[in-house]
Design a protein around this nucleic acid. Sequence first.
DNA 1: ATGTTC
Length: 474
Amino acid sequence: MIQNESYYRRIDLPAGDLHVYAGDALFRAMGAKPLEMANNNLQIPNIRYMSYTPDAHVGVGTCIGTTAVWKADEGFVSPTIVGSDIGCGMRVHLTNLDADDLKDVKLRRKLVKAIEKRIPTENHARGHFSDIRLEDVLIKGLHGLPGKYVPDAYTPRRATSLTHVEHARFRYDENALNRIPEHLWHRAHRQLCTLGGGNHFVELQAVTLDEANRDIGERWGLRDGQVIVMIHSGSRSWGGAVNQHCGSEVVKTMRKLGLGTADPKLAFAPLDSEAGATYVNLMYAALNFAVANRHLLAFAVRDALRETLGPQAETRTLYDLMHNYALEESHNDEPLFVHRKGATRSLPPGHPDNPEPYMETGHPALIPGSMGTSSYLMVGVQSGARNYHSICHGAGRVRSRNATKQLVTVDEFAASLRVGQEDEVVVNHRALEAIIDESPQAYKDVDQIIESVTGAGLAAVVAKCRPLATVKGV
DNA sequence: ATGTTC
């Protein structure tokens, strides 16, 4: 792995240093606003490190693509940095199918219909799981689901279900759950196994292994032409409820301690304050919700695959990895409190925070592309330590939803999905117009983003995954 | 991203 400094720059801002991992073109495209926002974030006390990934772009209070690090024993937590889609992230399952099995466009359409039958995608969608207790899910994550949703073949080695949350170092205090009013509990329960809108998706993809890391890919159970299921979703309305009901306490604590930055929207509190600790606990419940939700979505996809392609279809878990959260991690044996907002953890071989099955290879880092473009499975490398093992979380938006609707025509969107051709990426939407703000023209080129990540020596590509069929919400 | 709307 060659570290090329043309993919990295240190920006000396008045409030402190910002580290940016991006090639020249991507850095220039970011503009001035992200630097101004970084300068506000760097005014939070005791911050030790802040960086942007190459897909960084403006968000509320803090850019999407931010990694922000404190020492654990003098740490601050910021609900604004984490953002409201707490626990948003990716899940990948490996099937025993080949892309050839899905060569027929009609079959891909049938499969998309079968998925939609099980995963509500409309606005205000409702799931229906009277056999699941929300409290169990919030407290125990996947282990709070009834056994029938967690079959053995689905969770290899039984010892682990392979999620990032389970391997976090955090002792969870469930008392904080009482802060969330009852009607929001009901809403969250109804939303189990729903997809949500925006950039969320369920996608079937075909694997191409990268020659340089073929051995790692094969150890993970990947092979060329294999069909995988990639899922992008979050904690639905629960994450927003957590921010809403912790926000005022956090702001009160800031006033009491005389804390603030140039941006009044930027909320933060010491980890050892009551408001800070309550937020961290409720955030953790949201992470549990998000991972259980993605798990249920994957379970529904397995069912749809079996209905469409036969009962022999299998979908074993590769990994579940979120990109909006803050948790304690160890780096060089030092306990740190790391925020990632639209940034993906990518640990190298041997890092102690890897789950046991991935200790020798590093865990898979799951990176979605935009619609119609490829996604990536990456792995961390030792030199990624310079950025606390954070990499990009996707292509990164390049224009707003409204600007995209004005600029892109339905025909252009359809052309980018190769509609009408044999290799059409089948999408559940009859009217592409409803999701035109998700067209690839709204995003940066994910291949360029990945080039910056590998060029800067942060991670390596294990597989490139080409989309076959996509299910989107509204 | 989400839910809400005098």
